[in-house]
Design a protein around this nucleic acid. Structure first.
Lengths: 242, 242
DNA sequence: CGAGGGTTTGAATTAGATCAACTCTCGTGG
DNA sequence: CCACGAGAGTTGATCTAATTCAAACCCTCG
């Protein structure tokens, strides 16, 4: 099966916004490259825009491309033959897609909202890594962080209750957005179904758990894609943090 | 909390067996270092022996040491405050322990049987990585493989039934031992409790699932630490491989 | 031979899944 | 402007896979 996706593609170096003013750079592996060398980076990258709902990585395909997410949110997932799906993570601005690759992609990826990507071919990335050891080191750090996050998720999936999973999820979302404790609103671009497949639950259980947390006064739900953390301390207790 | 463990410690370079004849080297990141440079590696390593049941990494401790397993099997795990435990993986010969580290250890580690380790201090490993880019590359490959394995485990924990989990576990064990399809005996140094905590189940459910697979003729159980795969095709079907 | 792990098996319980109905929101078109 | 329909979300009733509780059943080892 080959990866065919509808997307807008253009060469990074020909695009209005150069790497130097890229909003994703501070959060991504690209920050390992000095400003002076950014033209080298730009020359290796293709800018891609993927429409909501479209797939841009197919599990099992030969891994010829690596991606850096510069905008929007994608779901990263694995599937079983009968359709059961496990979402591995949500890739947002700054996420490097391509660590979970040995020879072919171990995961599929789909845009949730409109996603902007920088695409690097395997060979060009290889060349960059050879020229910039700092980039390789940064990739290793990113890989470490991903392994740590994965282990935390295994603990969640293997040992936490539905309510604990949801509390953990909301707190993790709040933390990664980097918002201070003051602004307690967490944005959730994904559907309840996505959250269910991420937490190893069903849609119904996710919905019920949301309702309970709300009834218990721990959260507010102004609309389906936002949650207000009303009692963070209580949520932390619920999350049963290791 | 500080890591205090009972162990036999000696300098690698003063030990009878040098790196060049180390049985773990072909399977470990050490293979990235040329034979000519092995004395450098040996000088950085301490050989440690950990007795069965003893802990040698405590979750949350500052990560000052990295380990390479050269013999035996250790369990890598995370715990919740109330004692619930999730085993992240079983580290055997060739496994590098220290990828899941940002600043402190994200996991605990205990010897299952007698474990032999090479210990590297953070600073010495840093120095080695600076001198041998091939080692850093190898570490990145190891990290990729670990991320892929972690994602597979998330799929198992989030979406597979007890029977599917056990079938997957047995096949994974058979694969990593590298044994050809001919020799169908899989050795399990860990207890049923360890398997349960690895698969996100209880001891009882693991035991029952073993019994069912045996009753259905898919496996034989000569003793508690060995399983014979009698019908690999059927096991693969049961494992619901992605 | 008896003690104490680890393991197995059975019966009762339950968290979460499944099945099913209903609601909410939002975009479309008469 | 409102009816309509479709997709996402919620809620209730029922079911079940796995857990929990409880009681044997091995082995191994002193």
């Amino acid at each position: 099966m080959s990866t065919t996706y509808t997307a807008t593609i253009s060469l990074r170096s020909s695009v209005a916004e150069p790497c130097s003013s890229c909003g994703a750079r501070p959060f991504s592996v690209c920050s390992a490259i000095d400003t002076a060398d950014l033209d080298r980076l730009a020359a290796a990258a293709m800018v891609i825009r993927v429409e909501p709902g479209r797939s841009f990585v197919v599990e099992g395909d030969r891994a010829d491309s690596f991606f850096n997410v510069t905008g929007g949110t994608a779901r990263i997932f694995k599937s079983l033959p009968d359709g059961r799906r496990q979402i591995i993570g949500f890739a947002a601005r700054g996420y490097f897609l391509g660590l979970a690759v040995v020879d072919s992609y171990a995961f599929g990826a789909e845009a949730i909202d409109a996603v902007q990507l920088c695409r690097f071919s395997r060979t060009r990335l290889r060349a960059l890594l050879d020229d910039f050891p700092a980039l390789e080191r940064r990739l290793l750090e990113a890989a470490s962080a991903e392994i740590v996050a994965g282990q935390e998720q295994m603990l969640l999936l293997g040992r936490k209750t539905a309510r604990e999973r949801l509390a953990s999820f909301l707190l993790a979302r709040a933390a990664l957005c980097g918002c201070p404790p003051g602004s307690a609103t967490v944005h959730l671009p994904m559907t309840r179904g996505d959250i269910a497949d991420y937490l190893g639950l069903t849609i119904e259980t996710v919905s019920r758990s949301f309702s309970r947390l709300k009834a218990d006064g721990l959260i507010g739900i102004p609309n389906n894609s936002d949650v207000i953390l009303l009692d963070r301390a209580a949520l932390e207790a619920e999350a049963a943090q290791g």
